[in-house]
């Protein structure tokens, strides 16, 4: 460490030295894969670095690291489960409809962005919105599938739009 290191940097270095392998082990136990565990622990420290004001107030560094780490882990699993669902859907496509390898990656990225956009919506709202946007179902059809009134569907749609518009800001 250089002498010019600020107190924040020093705290971060210390934090990293003392807790990195512990955090990596914790993540590894949940991921079963060292590479991903190392990447996620790295990301966790990067997140902590991005909000340095918190560092000085850390009484329980491990609890804080776990909070950040858990959030990243959940996001990671969401991306993975999306990938998985996507790959399975791809595998079931007839040969003729198979997108080119380049398109497959691009599409996956687009879907990941849409997934993040919808993240946090209640399941019924999310589903109503997807049926409307992707399958072109009208409100009466959605209402029937969800066993709710058309008014509720309209409210769901407004809620989903509002959510997406705000996240996208």
């Amino acid at each position: 460490m250089s002498e010019a290191a600020s107190p924040t940097e020093q705290t971060l270095h210390g934090l990293y030295r003392e807790h990195r392998s512990w955090l990596e082990r914790w993540l590894y136990q949940r991921l079963g894969n060292r590479w991903d565990a190392a990447d996620l622990s790295q990301d966790t420290f990067l997140r902590v670095l991005a909000s340095p004001q918190v560092l000085s107030e850390l009484r329980e560094p491990r609890a804080y690291l776990l909070t950040v780490g858990k959030r990243l882990l959940v996001n990671f699993h969401k991306r993975r489960s999306l990938e998985q669902a996507y790959l399975e859907a791809l595998a079931n496509l007839p040969e003729a409809q198979m997108p080119s390898p380049e398109q497959r990656w691009l599409l996956l990225e687009t879907l990941q962005a849409l997934d993040e956009l919808l993240d946090g919506l209640p399941p019924a709202v999310r589903r109503a919105f997807l049926w409307s946007q992707l399958e072109g179902l009208n409100y009466a059809q959605i209402a029937e599938r969800l066993a709710v009134s058309e008014r509720t569907v309209k409210r769901y749609m407004a809620q989903a739009y509002e959510h997406c518009l705000l996240v996208d800001l």
Binding site: H77, K78, S81, L82, A85, A89, L90, L111, D115
Partner: peptide, 25 residues
Amino acid sequence: RFQEVPPSLAMASLDRPEPNRRTLL
């Protein structure tokens, strides 16, 4: 953005069953 993705692939990916947070951890 939703118009541009192939509907069946997008539906299968975005409407997947999602394990809850507790299970994920």
